[in-house]
Design a protein around this nucleic acid. Structure first.
Lengths: 210, 210
DNA sequence: AGTATTCCTGACCGTATGGTCAGGATGAGA
DNA sequence: TCTCATCCTGACCATACGGTCAGGAATACT
C-alpha cells in the first residue's frame, strides 16, 4: 500500500483538521463570545480531543485570531462588487447583494466580527486602522465622485456605508431575533430575496440614485 | 445625630448601591460579554468588595438578567415616538430620532442587548416572544395602514423595522469601528446631528413618504 | 527495513472564577 | 439605652478553564 490509511496525505489531513477546527471554533465563538467559548466545547464540536486543538493552534487566542482574520478576508472580498461598477445603482446594488449573501452564508462569522468590534477589537485593531480604513477611504471617494457627477443625492459617504453595513449585517447578527419574530422559523429563500430587494430599493431610492 | 453617617437612609443607600452595581455591570458585560465579564471586574469598577455584589445580587446570572431587563425597558420606551404620530414622516422620523438618541446615551446597554440576542437570547427569550412580538405586530399594522392610505410606498413592515433597528443600533454596537474610522475620535455633536438627519432623510425618501 | 518526523492524546497542573459563610459593623425601632 | 434586623466583607471553597507534556501511533524518507 503506497499511501495512507485514511484519505489524503499528511499535508492534506493537516489542512482538513485545521479547517474542521476553524469551522467549529467559528460557531462556538459566535454563540458564546470569546470569554464564553471554551476549548473543550470547540473540541467536542470538531470531534477531536482538546489536546489536539493545541497541537494545531498553540493558544485560544491564536485560534480566535485566525477565525477573525478569515471573516475579515470574506468581508473585504465583497468589495469587488464595488470596483466593477460604473454608477451607484450598479455598484451599491451589487455591494448590498454581496453583503446580504455573506450574512446568509456566514452568519457565525459575522457574529464573531461583531463580537470582536464590540470588544474594542483587541485582536484586529490593526486591521481596522489599516486595511478597513484604506478600503473605506477609497469607497468614500468613489461615492463622492458619483455625487459630484450628479448621479445621486449629496450624502456623507461614511454615513451611507454605516447604513449599508448595519442593515446587511443585522440579518446575520440578529438572526435569532428575526427568526423569533418570524414565528420561530428561519427565513425562507423567498424571504431572503424579498428582504434583499426591499433593502436595495429603499436605500437606492433614498439616495436619489439616477 | 439623628440620621446616618453617610447620606441617605438604609433603603436609599440600598437603591444607590444597586444602581451603582448595575451601572458597572452594564459596562463590564458590554465590554467583555457574559462569559468574559467577571464579578471581580464589576466589583472593582463599582468600588465595592466582590462579596457585596453577592449580597445584592445572588448570582452573576441574576445580575445580568437585571441589566438586560433594564435595557429592554428603555428599548420599548422609544416606542412612544410611534404612538403619538399621525403619519409616517412624523412617526418614523421621531422613532429614528429616539433610537439614535438611545444609541448615543446608552451605548453599553445596546451592546449588552446585542450580545444577548447573538447568544440566542438565553435570558430574555420570553420577552422576545411576548413583549417584542406584540409591539412589532402592532407597529407593523400601523405601517401597513399608512401604506394602504397611500402615505408611503408598499414595503414589508418587518423589513423596514429591521432596517431602522439595524441602522440606529449600529451607532452604539459598532461605536469602536466608527470611532476608528473617524480618526480615533468619538463622534462630535455635529456628527451625531448630521448622522441623524442623513439617516432619516435616506430612509424617509427611500420609503416614498409623502 | 530502518529511521526520522510528524501526528495525536490521556493525564496532569496552576490559576482564576463564581459563590459561600462566619462574624463584625451599622443603622432602625422601642 | 438596649435590641434586633440589615448591611458588609475578608477569607475561604470547589470547580472549570487554558495550557503542558511524556510517550505512543502513524507516516514519510532513504
Amino acid at each position: 500500500m503506497a499511501q495512507t490509511k485514511r484519505a489524503g496525505s499528511k499535508k492534506e489531513r493537516r489542512q482538513e483538521s485545521e479547517a474542521l477546527i476553524l469551522k467549529a471554533a467559528e460557531k462556538v465563538f459566535a454563540e458564546a463570545g470569546y470569554g464564553g467559548a471554551t476549548m473543550q466545547l470547540i473540541a467536542d464540536l470538531a470531534g477531536l480531543p482538546k489536546a489536539n486543538l493545541h497541537y494545531y493552534f498553540p493558544t485560544k487566542e491564536a485560534l480566535y485570531r485566525q477565525v477573525v482574520e478569515k471573516i475579515f478576508r470574506i468581508w473585504l472580498e465583497a468589495a469587488d462588487a464595488f470596483d466593477e461598477a460604473e454608477g451607484p445603482r450598479e455598484g451599491l446594488g451589487a455591494y448590498i447583494d454581496a453583503k446580504m449573501e455573506i450574512s446568509r452564508r456566514h452568519p457565525a462569522g459575522s457574529k464573531v466580527w461583531a463580537f470582536e468590534v464590540m470588544h474594542r477589537a483587541p485582536i484586529i485593531q490593526d486591521y481596522l486602522e489599516t486595511a478597513l480604513m484604506q478600503w473605506t477611504k477609497g469607497r468614500a471617494q468613489l461615492i463622492q465622485g458619483w455625487i459630484e457627477d450628479g448621479l445621486m443625492d449629496p450624502v456623507d459617504p461614511q454615513i451611507l456605508l454605516n447604513l449599508i453595513w448595519a442593515t446587511t449585517q443585522h440579518y446575520a447578527d440578529f438572526s435569532h431575533q428575526i427568526e423569533t419574530l418570524n414565528g420561530g422559523q428561519p427565513m425562507t429563500d423567498e424571504q431572503w430575496d424579498n428582504a434583499k430587494t426591499n433593502v436595495k430599493n429603499i436605500i437606492l431610492k433614498g439616495l436619489g440614485v439616477k
